[in-house]
Design a protein around this nucleic acid. Structure first.
Lengths: 205, 205
DNA sequence: AAATTGAACGCTTTGTTGATTATTCAGAGA
DNA sequence: TCTCTGAATAATCAACAAAGCGTTCAATTT
């Protein structure tokens, strides 16, 4: 069996175990048994148990990222609308994922505790999408706030932090969270488009 | 001794103990001993140990609130500037308080875990100040965003959540946090004043 | 030589026990 | 009657032992 095939087999077995019994209640010996190999042999393919979890999370997250990338270039929508869709999709996905599946919550907690880098990596990926979204808006001649886009994206993420892993910080329900995110975005977006406002104001005058 | 005097005495003794040895390492018997009474008697004045901690936190926080109220009407500053001062003061105070004093961190953690209501109460108090700040700005003829001020204040708090108990959510240093808060506020404030921008734009044209 | 195993190691978790502590309350004292 | 005490109670915590698990590596198989 090729190295890649073995890795995939391990990831598949671990994914089954983790989602059935949880990360903590799954042993390396069990995963190895499912792959018809010894526990020790797993370490030829992964540095450790956490790295298997990380590989699973990465795979899952890449799918999500692709989904977000599509939203960021949704036809028939302008920049602010796309940003709104992006952040709402993010909120809904993580909410549902962590809400209905306690195993997913456990894995999220373990990974973000033991591998803080991972959360940074996710943030950086999404920031990149936001930057591209702004660049695309600029290309289409829409108003885009002046200044370093990277930095603006960072601030957007800071301001919407509360909605990224909602259930880690509050016990609010999804509808309440959506209302709040809506309000925050209204402030942010109008802030991001002062000239559009100005133009409307001029037209009215 | 009057009931109130006894309460004050208990609060004082507990404050000394808590800040010297921490909440967990202080026993009710010790606090009672400092007050020259029995442990059981403490329960005539407070429902429990946590309520003593809450009383101390409340007293301390009321001072802080008064300080914030002054900032919210700082002369020679307009609404956005006052809001900025308010939020920066909030960030600096909590950062320093929790940074240099592990006892304060312990008490903050205990109270916010066992008495989640308390954090809500603090948020509501600060929200009230923000609303008053906006009303004052309106009275002075400044631009104030349309809509329910209560709700706007809520959104401002959502967007600046990351800076409220900074060390519970990230390991960022104060300078980095200040830079981020500055960036977020730039977005928010410009969003809160589209007509001011519009006016500038018109003047330039 | 390369791949794989499984026993051995040390760390973390779990279970258990005993002691400490918050809280209660019957009764003593004012 | 009202205040207060201190012993009784129940919950929590700390310390320790045992078990389980992730990880390593010398030995074995391919």
């Amino acid at each position: 069996m090729s190295k890649d095939a073995a890795r995939d087999k391990i990831i598949y077995a671990a994914k089954c175990r983790f989602s059935h019994f949880g990360y903590g209640k799954t042993t390396m010996a069990e995963v190895a048994g499912d792959c018809e190999m010894s526990a020790g042999n797993l370490y030829r393919f992964f540095p450790g148990k956490l790295d298997i979890a990380e590989a699973i999370a990465t795979e899952d997250y890449e799918n999500h990222l692709n989904h977000l990338r599509k939203i960021a270039v949704l036809p028939g929508k302008n920049g602010p609308e796309r940003l709104r869709e992006l952040l709402f999709e993010e909120l809904r996905r993580t909410y549902h994922k962590l809400e209905k599946d306690p195993r997913a919550l456990e894995m999220a907690q373990v990974i973000s505790r033991e591998r803080p880098q991972f959360a940074n990596w996710m943030l950086a990926n999404e920031r990149k999408i936001i930057v591209e979204l702004m660049e695309e808006s600029e290309r289409r001649g829409e108003y885009v706030p002046p200044g370093d886009k990277q930095e603006i994206a960072e601030m957007i993420q800071s301001a919407t932090m509360k909605f990224r892993y909602p259930q880690l910080w509050s016990k609010l329900t999804l509808p309440k969270l959506e209302r709040e995110l809506d309000g925050v975005l209204k402030l942010l977006i109008e802030g991001l488009c002062p000239l559009r406002m100005a133009a409307q104001h001029e037209n009215a005058a």
